[in-house]
Design a protein around this nucleic acid. Sequence first.
DNA 1: CTTGACCCTCCCATGATAGGAACCCCATAT
DNA 2: ATATGGGGTTCCTATCATGGGAGGGTCAAG
Lengths: 141, 141
Amino acid sequence: MTLVTIAQASAMTGVSAKMIRHYESIGLIKAPLRTENRYRHYSEAELHELGFIRRSRDLGFSFEDIRQLLSLWRDKGRSSAEVKAIALRHIEELDQKAAALGAMSRTLKHLAATCHGDDRPDCPILDALDHPKKADSFSDP
Amino acid sequence: MTLVTIAQASAMTGVSAKMIRHYESIGLIKAPLRTENRYRHYSEAELHELGFIRRSRDLGFSFEDIRQLLSLWRDKGRSSAEVKAIALRHIEELDQKAAALGAMSRTLKHLAATCHGDDRPDCPILDALDHPKKADSFSDP
DNA sequence: CTTGACCCTCCCATGATAGGAACCCCATAT
DNA sequence: ATATGGGGTTCCTATCATGGGAGGGTCAAG
């Protein structure tokens, strides 16, 4: 049974020590063993769990989602449908956010394309921010 | 000179009263006139400014960006290059964020596609979160 | 024995927005 | 006149994930 300190756990999992403590404080992971010094020490199973969390975060899942994913992960009798449902809902959120960002970017690109970007003060970008939008020709390309 | 209350200003500009006060507190707009009751009253110029801010926010600009955009907007001798530079940098940020979300979504879609999503417990989504990623075939379609 | 590298807990900050408490002001309906 | 309701005001708290720092304990090696 290999036990490692929080800094080692951090290095091994890519989760900062700060965040590891935070996960514990919000009950995402359970409190690990402590030595006499009150130092936290993590087992391989706990390291694995931290890795799971980090990969979930990398995919943009919220703590609430991760809480559920972890519990399904631990439940050997889970149904894959439950997992898939969480994933599908998250995919929708991601796509929605990406679309919103894309729309902003597209609008700004149109505006920037017609801004000469030199010493002169006139600028379609400021004009667009200035005036309540009239018939903007940028809605859909 | 038409003066309106904060609630009317909110309705006219689409910025919540809460946010209007907040903008004032962080110095994004300057403190408006007050009546004897200490009620804020906004002039048309101030309403226009609030509209400018709202449209900037709709395009995803941060308060810091908006602070600069506002000052350029007020400066009649500005160079459009400065405005364009802010916009281009912001476009890059937007595209970068959108790409990150898109990558997450794509990965999850691949995983979800191979998850049967029924009563059985085995699930490629959990597998991916479980195992440190090996050669994932999802990097680029 | 001191130095430096860890560890601990606790508080505060971010960015944009919202909710609420506790209070003041004013108009209209009873 | 007074109750009701709908403004307004300030200040505190929360969100979400993360990080910074203060102030202090613990342990190895020099």
